[in-house]
């Protein structure tokens, strides 16, 4: 088996006339936590959908465990998706089922386990995210953080090889953010899986990531360990990591030259 679980090679993807990625390449090492970071609006979620096979790149290849995702047949794709799971930004819990049924859902769909066994597995997974007591609640009765944890329990129900997190920290209070950060870290260690986190919460993710990929301007602008990244020479990387208001990524979107001139040289 190769070192990396997901390999993105020379991918170009555009939506309509807008080019989102141009010849982008990076890899996600097996058994590690990889963070994809970048300013909002550059299509980080799109990346996850490409890896999950929901979208197809215009050119280039994406491999999951050595097989090409865009070239997979529908059946193969569905088979591969049982080994990866995705935690959506909103949690995407099924609103018409209780927390318990939500977590049991992938088990009931894809395994022939008896109800007793399913109950056991679900309670284990809920215990792992600390929501065993909330199993009979409906998703509408959960707070945002709890919903995300419940969704996490559902994502690990089938013991996947790879979990993709789409903005797991967005809109969380510091406590639930801390809980999630610790949980992602410990799940990765305990279950021995690979994690791919898409986020722009720099400090949280740098504390747990083993590998960081920063995307901007239609491609990868830097990758490496968090330490390497912090010491990176590119001004773009520095602007992003330090959260500076202006720099290579301008504060003003498509502004008139006169205004840009007025504000230039203020920060860098």
């Amino acid at each position: 088996m190769s070192q990396s679980i997901v390999e993105v090679k020379d991918v170009t993807f555009s939506r309509g006339n807008r080019v989102i990625y141009k010849n982008m390449s990076f890899s996600v090492p097996r058994g590690k936590i990889t963070a994809i970071m970048g300013p909002s609006g550059i299509g980080k979620t799109t990346m996850l959908r490409l890896i999950g096979g929901q979208l197809r790149p215009d050119s280039g290849d994406i491999t999951f465990q050595g097989t090409s995702v865009p070239a997979m047949s529908r059946a193969d794709l569905y088979h591969a998706r049982k080994q990866m799971s995705m935690l959506f930004q909103s949690g995407a819990l099924f609103t018409d089922m209780s927390v318990f049924d939500n977590v049991a859902f992938p088990l009931r769909e894809h395994t022939q386990l008896s109800e007793d066994l399913i109950r056991l597995v679900v309670l284990m997974k809920l215990q792992a995210v600390g929501l065993r007591g909330a199993r009979d609640l409906m998703p509408s009765e959960l707070s945002g953080g709890m919903a995300r944890r419940a969704a996490l329990a559902r994502a690990i129900a089938l013991d996947p090889e790879l979990i993709m997190y789409d903005e797991p920290f967005a809109g969380q209070d510091p406590i639930s953010m801390g809980v999630l950060v610790r949980m992602i870290k410990s799940l990765n260690e305990v279950l021995g899986l690979s994690s791919l986190i898409v986020t722009h919460d720099v400090t949280e993710v740098l504390s747990i990531a083993d590998h960081v990929v920063i995307i901007a301007e239609q491609g990868v602008i830097g990758s490496g360990t968090p330490e390497q990244m912090l010491a990176h020479s590119s001004p773009l990387v520095q602007q992003f990591l330090q959260g500076l208001a202006d720099g290579p990524v301008p504060f003003h979107f498509n502004a008139a030259p006169y205004e840009e001139e007025l504000l230039s040289g203020g920060t860098q």
Binding site: R81, K82, S85, M86, F88, A92, P106, E109, H110
Partner: peptide
């Protein structure tokens, strides 16, 4: 989307 990612 989440159903689709769960291979359903």
């Amino acid at each position: 989307s989440s159903l689709e990612m769960m291979a359903v």
